[in-house]
């Protein structure tokens, strides 16, 4: 053993040196560094999880925004159609009203015209009868009294009117 260089004091010195190194490195280097590595791993895991969560949330909010947008769009569509319908109805109503009014106007005008015409005809007839009487009086000079003439002419004119109508 001695020839190989192994001697007890030297061996014990080296064992003690190595154990001291082991203890010091464990206390000074490994403990804080391993703790730091663990902490960092934890932090990274937490960070990744948070990122994942944020991503999910973003996707979710995106979806809700999309939904809301869709809703608003359909709402707008509905409003537009409604407005169009209202407008249509209003227009038709107005049109109908105007038509009615025009019709009424026309009817009134027609009846006015009819009445005027009737009145004019009556007037004409009266005037004509007077004229005829005057004429006949002049012609026959009192062969007939006025009463008898009027009756005769009325009869003639009525015949004529019914034939004309």
């Amino acid at each position: 053993m001695g020839d190989l260089g192994i001697n007890l004091p030297g061996l014990i010195t080296q064992i003690i040196s190595f154990v001291i190194l082991f203890v010091i490195l464990s206390k000074v280097l490994y403990k804080p560094l391993v703790a730091m590595l663990d902490q960092r791993a934890e932090k990274i895991t937490a960070g990744l999880e948070a990122a994942e969560r944020a991503k999910e949330e973003a996707a979710k909010s995106e979806e809700s925004i999309q939904e809301q947008l869709q809703e608003a769009r359909t709402e707008g569509q509905k409003l537009v159609t409604q407005a169009r319908e209202t407008a249509d109805r209003f227009r038709e109503e107005e049109m109908a009203k105007v038509k009615e009014e025009l019709e009424a106007e026309r009817v009134r005008a027609e009846s006015n015209i009819q009445r005027e015409r009737d009145a004019a005809i009556e007037e004409l007839r009266k005037e004509f009868a007077g004229l005829a009487i005057t004429a006949a009086e002049k012609v026959v000079k009192t062969s007939l009294d006025e009463e008898g003439h009027r009756a005769l002419i009325d009869g003639v004119l009525n015949d004529e009117g019914s034939r004309n109508n």
Binding site: I6, N7, G10, L11, Q14, I15, F18
Partner: peptide
């Protein structure tokens, strides 16, 4: 290069 050292580590 000293057997004491390598033996010490091996024993520990």
């Amino acid at each position: 290069t000293d057997l004491n050292m390598s033996l010490a580590i091996a024993l520990v």
